[in-house]
């Protein structure tokens, strides 16, 4: 599904990612953990195609294509979904309009006709249940006046409607209280599937109590310094990140 090979990336001339290697197979859930400044957000932004990030070395292969050569919308149309750490508010664009436009953009790429209005509404209603969102949110402007938890749920709703092949969840747990975290996690868990891969980027272990990953990677100073299974996350919880700086690259737990 996703193959990251020796990825180096800079922001404003400063190298942030310094040789990331990672392989994600269909159906797998990977967690990337790391302290502040490790390069977690840079990695998610590079994968989504945000401007201002310069890839200086390496490549990212998604379903056999060079992901880095695609525009952000081309990535999305091919099934790459980024759940934003800080979802933006967009005055004047209703949630339902956004969902429909996004879904139709994916369908157009897939050679399908625009979604039928009634089918669409049924789909959206169904997916709203996953994240326990009230229907009134459909007619509100995207994230405008939403609480932190509502914004994150809204991201997962978009994911649920778009059914991506690869979802990158950037700090989806940040700013959530425990109840909101549970709702978001349940939504994500319901979307786990054999043909869908999920990459979670997080600072804290607690998200992983609710969405249990198949693999955990520790990111430090732009490199993955340790990879392992879910037990690795628990180890991190106990001992913190201080030890990771000394660990050699690629060591397994």
């Amino acid at each position: 599904m996703l193959e990251i090979k020796n990825l180096h990336a800079s922001v404003g001339g400063k190298e942030i990612l310094r040789g990331i290697n990672m392989s994600v197979n269909p159906g797998e859930v990977h967690a990337i953990m790391g302290p502040n400044g490790a390069g977690k957000s840079t990695l998610s932004n590079v994968l989504a195609g945000r401007e201002g990030y310069e890839v200086t070395q390496g490549e990212v292969i998604y379903k056999g294509e060079n992901l880095l050569e695609l525009e952000p919308e081309e990535r999305a149309q091919r099934g790459v979904f980024l759940a934003f750490q800080y979802p933006v508010e967009i005055p004047g664009v209703s949630n339902i309009y956004l969902l429909k436009a996004a879904l139709n953009a994916v369908r157009k790429y897939q050679g399908l006709e625009e979604v039928d209005a009634i089918d669409f509404l049924n789909l959206v209603r169904d997916r709203m249940k996953l994240v326990k969102m009230d229907e009134q949110f459909l007619h509100r402007n995207v994230n405008e006046g939403f609480s932190g938890g509502e914004k994150k749920r809204n991201e997962i709703l978009q994911m649920a409607v778009l059914e991506p092949a690869l979802a990158i969840l950037d700090e989806t747990d940040s700013g959530l209280d425990i109840d909101a975290l549970r709702v978001v996690a349940e939504g994500v868990n319901a979307l786990r599937a054999e043909d869908r891969s999920i990459v979670m980027i997080t600072h804290y272990q607690r998200l992983l109590d609710h969405i249990v990953p198949d693999f955990v990677h520790v990111l430090s100073e732009g490199r993955i310094v340790k990879s392992g299974d879910k037990e690795l996350a628990k180890e991190l919880e106990k001992s913190g990140y201080s030890w990771v700086h000394d660990a050699p690259e690629g060591q397994t737990a």
């Binding site: 525009e71 149309q77 934003f84 979802p87 967009i90 004047g92 996004a102 953009a105």
Partner: peptide, 26 residues
């Protein structure tokens, strides 16, 4: 805003047009 819409699959032209409409719509 533009990046958000593009990351949801809208091409740049459509995204700009939508944001323009959104600006005017109130």
């Amino acid at each position: 805003h533009l990046f958000f819409l593009r990351a949801r699959g809208l091409d740049e032209t459509a995204a700009r047009s939508l944001l323009t409409y959104a600006f005017a719509v109130d």
